[in-house]
Design a protein around this nucleic acid. Sequence first.
RNA 1: GGAGAGAUGUCCGAGUGGUUUAUGGAGCUGGUCUUGAAAACCAGUGACGCCGCAAGGUGCCGGGGGUUCGAAUCCCUCUCUCUCCGCCA
Length: 424
Amino acid sequence: MLDAKFIRKDPEAVRAGLAKRNTKVNLDLFLSLDEKRREIIRKAEQLKNKRNTVSQEIARRKKEKKDTDAIIAEMQQVSRDIRSMDEEARETEEQLNNILLTLPNLPHESVPVGKDDSDNEEVRRWGTPTQFSFEPKAHWDLGEDLGILDFGTAAKVTGARFTFYKGLGTRLERSLFTFMMDLHSMKHGYTEIFPPFMVNRRSMIGTGQLPKFEEDAFKVEGTDYYLIPTAEVPVTNMHREQILDGAQLPIRYCAYSACFRSEAGAAGRDTRGLIRQHQFNKVELVKFVKPETSYDELESLTNDAEDVLKELGLPYRVVNLCSGDLGFSAAKTYDLEVWLPSYQRYVEISSCSNFEDFQARRADIKFRDGAKGKPQYVHTLNGSGVAVGRTVAAILENYQQEDGSVIIPERLRPYMGGIDRISK
RNA sequence: GGAGAGAUGUCCGAGUGGUUUAUGGAGCUGGUCUUGAAAACCAGUGACGCCGCAAGGUGCCGGGGGUUCGAAUCCCUCUCUCUCCGCCA
């Protein structure tokens, strides 16, 4: 969330930043509540001071066997006043917090201003869109023809937007996330994490999914648990309510998890294939860094994610999301988009973001330099490294052959038990 | 799921209504001593949040609520940890 002190000090800057994201907010209400809260606290604390000193006075007088009835009667009223003021302060604070929790992050100055994804800025390309001397098939057809993907059975057993992987399809899926975890942990120096796939509500608020996007999440009925939409949630919240030692930063984690998304509002979009599922696998990169390094760390995080696609030989491009397309918590985001022949365009396969102190403030994650340093908020970053299901789709489509078989990228063959091709 | 025990400052560990507005130790910082270090001794140091320009004030003893003029201390409730029993991949 945004810093209340900053909003108080420079509301114009906040209005301007949010306007770039097409977010209109009424800061006047916030500002008046903020003033009200401080006023109540000032008065309540004066009374508390009185209560503390008089309580000691009462203790003294009782010891000396002096009469205390009059002061106690007076203090009863003071105590009542304190109680009602505390209550009013608490309510005001809650209102303030509710506003703060629904305000998105401010875009970084290097983010292009724009309305929607058509205003995103292409940063670079790697490889060239795959050319075919025959009519290429979509991955859902390839997968079903090869007997490695089964959407119909999943629809019966569970419902729409779920998939059974079978045989070498299963092996391809698990080869991919094992390869990705190896790459990030061994080559890029991230610490491997295997997180819980459910988290409590507090964690969902910490990273920004809640309270605003309740309809996007799956909640486990009768509990306080949510299925994670990304490993970002459990991994970032590992350090929630902690003060980290500055000497340990940057902390870098890579985590494999299944991800669960309700895809509310996506009806009719990407209904075929692996692109938009309620459950998918992903390897996620998460960093905790000092503020002054976070934009360099975003570049290297993006490079680490790109490395996956390079090693697999998949053509992609990097896009700097414009202000209007930015996610709720992000100050800046690079999307990696892989070439998908069936779509005849680049499709998002990774999203790498710097959240600055937005999540750290929500989740209360700080660091301290030296023993006497003042605790300050870390910057958090994360990025997919990368979405596994979409990688399977990209491999099937980009590596397909005229006879309907699919070549396995060389880098993956050791993980596939030496298999170099999937055919009927 | 049942029974019991526990949660106090960086750590260990006292404290069961009013000079505890948290005892004591360890640690940390500085000093004395020493060629240097260790040890010993002396002094200092107590998280974190909020209000305030500041001085200072205020809150905080797992979380929340209550009783009281006054709560780490009493009551209710929740969470987590440990031990035992049951069940279980």
